[in-house]
Amino acid sequence: MASLPTLPKRFHGPSVWVLYALGLCPAISAFYLGATGKLPGNAVKEFEHLLGLWALRFLVATLTITPIRDLIGINWLRYRRAVGLLAFYYVLMHFLAYMVLDQTLRIQPIIADIARRPFITIGMAAFAMLIPLAITSNNWSIRRLGQRWNKLHRLVYVIAAAGALHFAMAVKVVGPEQMFYLGLVALLVGWRAVRTRFLRWRRQQVVSGRPATEKAAG
């Protein structure tokens, strides 16, 4: 199988910073358009929804790193922290846009929303679960927590599912876009359930000398 040209090692660190910069572009451009009155119609809602959509996209993206390595043999593990943190930043901005721009900091309706509207409750729960993951997204925490870090970060499966559900429950009619994200999250989380067996099967193929589709990764 053809593989992508490998990035020289000295670019590894800078490429992560490029990813952060690119990842924040949608938020910056939407904020600029909103602040200058160039977002059509209900500018605050447009901004809020766009932030939410990108949060979901980055959540999905973090879940693709492992299957891409398993199936295509490309290792983008070094980008996973950045993508995960971008997801967190977008969720945070999505929440702040809702709280400050949309609800204009009227605390009582915000609390009522969180308590009474299931889709907002689910969204808030996902946000709350993301906080410990964001706080522990550093080398020190990984060293410190050891295996517990892996366990903790499996929460991302629940968070992604909650995010896709929050999106589907927020709209008046569940359409192709919502189905797409629900399906994608189901597929990516489902992969985790079969991946150990798949990798073992493929190793056996290699060991027994039969042609494997490719070299087992990792």
Binding site: N42, A43, L101, Q103, T104, R106, R116, R117, M169, A170
Partner: peptide, 24 residues
Amino acid sequence: VDHPRWSQATENRIGEGGFFGANR
């Protein structure tokens, strides 16, 4: 009477208040 998924107590007047103004 709230919609099950949002409050109907307030509304956002389109085209007013802008991005930062309290247009509820």
